[in-house]
């Protein structure tokens, strides 16, 4: 174990210890001790409740994340490559970026009913503008000298995209994915809270009404762990593999 990782572990353990100490000394209903929360976490995991709702939320996350990335990347490249389109749609983008997430969610439910599709759409609408902006930036920053090289050697469209454009966009794509994941996690819970009958957001809402802080915290911890796993086992390795040449 190298020392940065060790440090990270120590800091998490310290945080938990601090929490435990604070909770046991204050003895508030609103702040259960860490041990209680962990016990609850194990319990809801074993009885299948947490995996079920977490699974549903994760599915929604994957679907809306993939849709947002695909749509956002396509539009972003388009706007980055075509200044006229960009000038035209820039205002639209600004408006979309500035509509509060809650408004789009409620409007989606009002217009399309309390359906699964409306829930996904609400998340996608919230996320796409961010992806577009990031990818547009990346497309504008493409190295024209390399594009000319590809042109003069007659690479053709596919080879140029695959070997010349894609590697240059990749860092921007990773940035969009990172911020996207964080954003979607947060929005998806609100979406579920407002209009779904399952998923993490729905559960949290339930616990809120029952004033069950222990469960809320237990679910939150499960959440954080899943995000960390995605970061560690999907995003980090992807990034590392793509940047071996940067030494």
């Amino acid at each position: 174990m190298n020392s940065p990782r060790l440090n990270a572990c120590i800091s998490v353990v310290l945080l938990l210890a601090f929490w435990q100490l604070l909770a046991t000394s204050l003895k508030l209903q609103a702040l259960p001790p860490a041990t209680e929360v962990l016990k609850q976490l194990v319990m809801v995991t074993e009885n299948g409740q947490l995996p079920y709702h977490l699974g549903i939320t994760l599915t929604r996350l994957i679907v809306s994340f993939s849709l947002s990335m695909i749509i956002g990347v396509l539009i972003g490249i388009g706007l980055g490559r075509q200044p006229i389109l960009d000038q035209f749609f820039d205002q639209w983008l600004l408006i979309l970026l500035n509509i509060p997430a809650l408004v789009t969610i409620i409007l989606c439910y009002l217009w399309f009913g309390l359906t699964e599709a409306a829930a996904i759409l609400a998340v996608v609408i919230n996320k796409v503008p961010n992806v577009v902006v990031t990818i547009r930036e990346g497309t504008r920053a493409l190295d024209t000298r390399l594009l000319e090289m590809a042109d003069s050697y007659r690479f053709g469209r596919w080879k140029t995209y695959r070997h010349v454009i894609w590697p240059q966009l990749f860092p921007y794509l990773m940035a969009a994915a990172r911020t996207g994941l964080a954003l979607i996690w947060k929005i998806i819970l609100v979406v579920e809270l407002l209009g779904c009958s399952n998923g993490m957001g729905y559960q949290i809402h339930l616990f809120f009404q029952l004033f069950d802080v222990t469960s809320i915290l237990a679910y939150t911890i499960a959440f954080i762990i899943v995000i960390q796993l995605i970061e560690m086992f999907i995003l980090k390795p992807l990034e590392q593999r793509a940047s071996t040449w940067r030494q």
């Binding site: 000298r145 000319e148 090289m149 003069s152 050697y153 007659r154 053709g156």
Partner: peptide, 9 residues
């Protein structure tokens, strides 16, 4: 489209 031009920049 011919791949028979080479360019040294």
């Amino acid at each position: 489209t011919d791949n028979k031009v080479a360019y040294v920049f």
